[in-house]
Design a protein around this nucleic acid. Structure first.
Length: 567
RNA sequence: GCGCCCGUAGCUCAGCUGGAUAGAGCGUUGGCCUCCGGAGCCAAAGGUCAGAGGUUCGAAUCCUCUCGGGCGCGCCA
């Protein structure tokens, strides 16, 4: 049940009948409680355009609108707003008959490109946002019935591997441990920057890798295996849906790269510049107003990430038959993706009508406003971050509920800690940087995971306390108190929220919704006794509790956050 | 230099195709426990929406400029 769309359709139809032409109804949830549940703002704009009196148009629209059985009231207010209050019987029936989440009528095939760590290093905080936001988006799209194809475009193919392999080769260093390999990487990088000959040998190793030199490939593969298993550990710990089969590494496109170059050439897009092969598009200007190249092949023959990204678009269009590709990567790559998308379009790599979307986000900052680092100034590894989240949560749970068995406290702390980190990230819209603040994300007040988990566990507690078999609840929801009415409307707004999340790629809309739901539930809880009520009223309130708990759990799970029965 | 993103309360953030008196949380101040978890609820104080123009019946939202911050701009990803 998408209330907003239902009202939009009905009012838009009345508006069209009244005006003789189509006009948007512009329905949104009411700005203030006294304006009802929803408001339609479209009359004023339409009346203005046709030089009609907005109040008269509004009156006509109200008369024509088919809202019988849906709205209890539809009133004209101010210069021509329509304020709609939904009918309690309609709300009760909708709660009883509509599924909490309904599938989209026209499902799409959506590729979600996310996480994408660089396999030369351990996963660090820089990978968190893409992984968490992308995973939530994949879950939401799937819940709406879309065919989601997760693609973890891991970096396993660049210059960095050349330098790493060359370093290992020349120093005889060896290890099975990723942390050691990371140390090697840092030292290799130092040499790469300082020693021109070493850099040269490294680049040749990349070319050897890309041409399939068996010995180089063997050593490379071993390294990749270690690194990927580390990533999978993190994914499991984070509770993401990413699995090994979602890995579609840069190297997987190796055999397509020659064809990409050939296609670009055939399309007349390829130009040679300073020995490198590039695509120049007029709309991209760099320094001094010169056209910016997208370099697709280096002067030494090596390929770059632009090449693999183009190959990926081609693959996703032709093999995966994607209608839509959503990239969740940091904002610094915005220009790169604009170029890749534009070139892919010109070269015919994308399908007609295929939507290529970069959903950017900023860097994580500490509370001091500077990039989030350890005290020693190093990048924070994800494993450290998750350990600390659970430790902090455990201390808090132990302080508040020392009587719980330790195993349960640890499990609760795990859910709260991981959930808090994920929720803090998911609940912010910022395309620019965001501030990572332990105290705020672990606070039990405000728009945080702990508050939502608390709201959920408190409802569960009602059922335990009342010894109520929730599966046996029957009867109708009765909406008498204003808190009950508002809670019912809020419960039914899940669908429209999820559809907005899917359309815009903004999980924070779901966070905002869940917080609003929790707040409305708490108001209901304060105002309306549940277990001490009698008969139909008690049953009705328990039904509201059950639906609220289900909705909170569904919503949190779509964000990739678990719930606990008590905390 | 050019380009992209951003600037909303002391702090962290919302503000949905332009709409009614710009909203939350934290923090501050003050209420509410014979009642289902006080990890809660209610209320108050707090904003020239960076600034200046413009479009509009109506602008935090759209346009232009200025200031401030972040990022990007040829062989890294």
């Amino acid at each position: 049940m998408n209330l907003k769309r239902l009202l939009n359709d009905r009012i838009a139809a009345a508006l069209e009948a009244s005006l003789g032409e189509a006009a948007p109804a512009v329905v949104q949830s009411a700005a203030r409680p006294e304006f009802g549940d929803y408001q339609a703002n479209g009359v004023m704009g339409a009346a203005k355009r046709l030089k009609r009196n907005p109040r008269e148009v509004a009156a006509d629209v109200v008369a024509r609108a088919d809202l019988a059985g849906i709205a209890a009231r539809c009133e004209i207010a101010g210069p021509g707003f329509l304020n709609v209050t939904l009918d309690d019987g309609f709300l009760a029936t909708s709660l009883a008959t509509s599924a909490p989440v309904e599938a989209a009528p026209e499902p799409e095939t959506v590729v979600v490109d996310y996480s994408c760590p660089n396999l030369a290093k351990e996963m660090h905080v820089g990978h968190l946002r893409s992984t968490i936001i992308g995973d939530a988006m994949a879950r939401v799209l799937e819940a709406l019935g879309h065919t989601v194809i997760r693609q973890n475009h891991v970096g396993d193919w660049g210059t960095q591997f050349g330098m790493l392999l060359t370093f290992l080769d020349e120093t005889g260093a060896d290890s099975e441990l990723l942390s050691d390999l990371e140390t090697f990487y840092r030292e290799a990088k130092k040499r790469f920057d300082a020693d021109v000959d070493f850099a040269d040998r490294s680049r040749r190793a990349v070319v050897g890798l890309q041409r399939g030199d068996p010995e180089i490939r063997r050593r490379w593969q071993r390294f990749i295996d270690i690194s990927l298993s580390h990533c999978q550990e993190i994914y499991d710990r984070l509770g993401t849906t990413l699995r090994p089969e979602h890995v579609m590494a840069e190297s997987a496109y190796n055999d397509d790269l020659d064809a990409v170059i050939a296609d670009l050439d055939a399309a007349g897009l390829l130009e040679e510049s300073q020995g490198a092969r590039c695509v120049f598009l007029d709309e991209f200007k760099g320094k001094d107003g010169e056209t910016l190249p997208l370099i697709v092949q280096k002067s030494d023959g090596g390929y770059l990430y632009a090449t693999t990204d183009l190959a990926a678009v081609r693959y996703r269009a032709r093999r995966l038959e994607a209608d839509r590709v959503m990239y969740f990567t940091d904002a610094r790559q915005a220009l790169h993706f604009r170029q890749v998308f534009a070139v892919a379009g010109r070269a015919g790599f994308a399908r007609d009508g295929m939507s290529l979307e970069h959903h950017p986000f900023g860097a994580m900052l500490g509370t001091d406003g500077k990039p989030f680092k350890t005290r020693a100034g190093e990048v924070v590894k994800l494993i450290q971050l998750l350990d600390e989240a659970e430790e902090r949560a455990l201390a808090e749970v132990t302080r508040r509920n020392p009587e719980l068995p330790e195993a349960e406290r640890r499990e609760i702390a795990r859910v709260i800690g991981i959930g808090a980190v994920k929720y803090a990230d998911l609940s912010k819209n910022r395309t620019s940087d965001y501030v990572f603040d332990w105290d705020q994300m672990l606070s039990f007040d405000g728009n945080t995971a702990p508050y939502l988990l608390y709201a959920y566990s408190r409802i569960r507690s009602v059922f335990r306390r009342g010894e109520v078999d929730e599966d046996a609840l029957t009867g109708d929801v009765l909406l008498a108190a204003p808190e009950e009415h508002t809670l019912a409307v809020t419960l039914l707004r899940l669908q429209e929220t999820l559809e907005s999340v899917a359309a815009d790629g903004f999980p924070h809309l779901l966070c905002g919704y869940l917080y609003e739901l929790a707040v409305q539930f708490m108001r209901f809880y304060e105002a309306c006794p549940i277990l001490t009520a009698e008969g139909d009223v008690r049953a009705s309130r328990l039904l509201l509790c059950r639906r609220t708990a289900e909705t909170l759990k569904t919503g949190l799970n779509l964000l990739g956050i678990e719930t606990v029965e008590r905390m």
